[in-house]
Each structure stands twice: as C-alpha cells, then as structure tokens.
C-alpha cells in the first residue's frame, strides 16, 4: 500500500480508538468533575461491561444484532447499578475523602476483577459483531462495524452533553459540582446526585466496552489499558472538563493509531505517557482545565 492510503487506514483505526476512549474517559471526567473522586475502579467497570456483553450474547437467542442491542441497554444499567451501590455503601461512608476513596476504589477494582475471574473464567472470549459488512474504499476494505462504533460513541457523547446542559438533572449536577452545601440549601439531595453521577460514569465505561468488545474480545483483565489511557486523556484535557476530554481523546486516539500502525503500539503508549508528563510540568491544570485554588 502507498503511504497516503496507509496513513488513512492508521487515522481510521485511531478514530475508533479515540471514540471509545472519549466515552470511557468522559465517565471518569464526569465523576471527578462533579464528585472530586478519582475512580481507580473505572477500568473494572469497563471490563464488567464487556464481560456482561459476552454473557448476554450467550443467553439471548437469535441474530447477533439482537443480543448486541440487548447488551447495549442492559450492561450499562447493571454496571451503573453496581456503581451506585458501591457509592452508597462505600464512598458515601468515607465522606468522599480523597485518599480514602482512592484506596476504596482500588479495593473495588480487585473485587470486580476477582468476581469476573470466578464467573467468567481466565480466557478471552469473542462476542460476535452485530453487523458484518465492509466498506470498500479504492485502496482497502474497512469494517463497517468500526465506523458504526465511531458514530455510536459520538451519539452517546452528544446525549451526555445535552443532558448536562439542557435538562434539570444536568442543572442539578452542575450546581452540586459548584457548591454542594448551597445545593443542599436549595433542596438538592446531594447523596442521590452523587450516586447517579457515579452510576452514569460507570455506565459510560460499560457502553464503551459493549461497543468495543466485538473488535477486542472480553477478558477479566482488559480494564487496565482503558483506565491508564482515560487518566492520560483526563489529565491532558483538564480534570473535569468534558470538552478537554474530547479533544484529548481525539489527540491520543489518532496519534495512537498512527504510531501503532507505522511503528509499534508500545511506542504509542510511551509517547502518550511522555505527553502527560510534559502537560503536568508546563500546564498542570490541563489544556482546558481551570486552575484550582
């Protein structure tokens, strides 16, 4: 293949990575932005989404498209439910103390991974893609499903943005983020907002996982990379800034696609980590973050 088409292929692969990463990282960013909780278990929620998608594909009869649609609805709900429970039972009791919540979510990460190991087993398992067509470009054919993933992720992100900016629930979340004591003085049940936001963050990771699992296979340790990359994206974009998260996800995703294709995936991760170090040195609040007092 010539350089031009090869680059195009690399960029398309990067776009898929970016789309899924943007979804996963926006969940992490939302939770940090509104609750000031660094959720180390975020990758485990991602993994759980993928593993549950496999179970759904096994149990729901009929064509893959049907079981996929079911998984897309059910998995985020189950994962979100588990997250809301973890928030109420664990994080709330810790009063959301930053150090304590980090330790607690590390614990949650291990519990979820061990649970997945027990019920799902140590093997990677494939989930069939809901659609199987190739888009034939002049130079190469490309998976139609991968493009559908990009469109799907963009739609979900658009929905998140609409919820935050244009609904009552979003207004309540933003008010809670700004000043939780004053929010309470106006009848806002902050505990419920936190449980909802934690569920929403985990649910976004689960949606991302359901979208990616037909490409990647489900495995009980698959949460590590998304967690690391989400942290990278959220730090570069600016903690708590959704717009920054999107831009950084595109940046990291596309460069990951290009560098992995032309050089090696490991080099892509090394460079991403270096970029984080540089951002932390020269712009600690991130590209779009506000400086904190």
């Amino acid at each position: 293949m010539d350089f031009g088409p090869f680059l195009l292929l690399a960029l398309m692969e990067g776009l898929v990575t970016a789309a899924v990463l943007a979804l996963t990282a926006s969940g992490l960013s939302l939770v940090f932005g509104i609750m000031r909780v660094v959720n180390v278990a975020h990758g485990a929620f991602f993994m759980l989404g993928a593993v549950l998608a496999w179970f759904v594909s096994e149990w729901v009869p009929g064509p893959p498209a049907l079981s996929f649609a079911v998984a897309l609805v059910i998995c985020p709900l189950i994962v979100g439910g588990i997250a809301a429970l973890a928030d109420t039972v664990v994080l709330k009791r810790l009063n959301y103390e930053p150090e304590a919540t980090i330790v607690a979510t590390i614990g949650l990460l291990y519990i979820l991974e061990q649970a997945a190991l027990s019920f799902f087993g140590p093997d990677a398992r494939p989930v069939p893609a809901p659609l199987n067509f190739r888009i034939q470009l002049p130079w190469f054919g490309y998976s139609g499903y991968k493009l559908a993933v990009v469109v799907g992720a963009a739609l979900v992100l658009l929905a998140v943005w609409l919820i935050l900016k244009h609904t009552r629930a979003g207004l309540v979340m933003r008010a809670t983020q700004i000043d939780r004591d004053t929010a309470r003085a106006f009848g806002i049940n902050v505990d419920r907002v936190y449980a909802g936001v934690f569920a929403m963050g985990a649910g976004l990771a689960a949606i991302a996982a359901v979208l990616i699992v037909p490409i990647q296979q489900a495995h009980y340790l698959m949460g590590g990379d998304p967690l690391l990359l989400s942290f990278i994206v959220v730090i570069i974009g600016g903690l708590g800034s959704l717009r920054g998260t999107l831009v950084a996800a595109l940046l990291i995703g596309l460069s990951d696609g290009v560098i992995s294709t032309f050089f090696a995936p490991t080099l892509a991760k090394i460079i991403a980590t270096l970029v984080v170090a540089l951002v932390l040195v020269f712009r600690p609040q991130g590209l779009f973050g506000k400086r904190m007092a």
Partner: peptide
Amino acid sequence: GYVPQGRRLFGDLTVAENIEIGLMTR
C-alpha cells in the same frame, strides 16, 4: 429560604439557572 454570607451563588451558572434552582426547591 437562605441567603448565605458572601452570597454563594452558583457562579458558573446563568442568572436564569440560579433562579431555576430556587424554583425547583419547592
């Protein structure tokens, strides 16, 4: 109804949104 010392508005929200939150309370 509570008007705190130093006002404690939801500073990043618009006037309309601050009002909206007041209305939602009851």
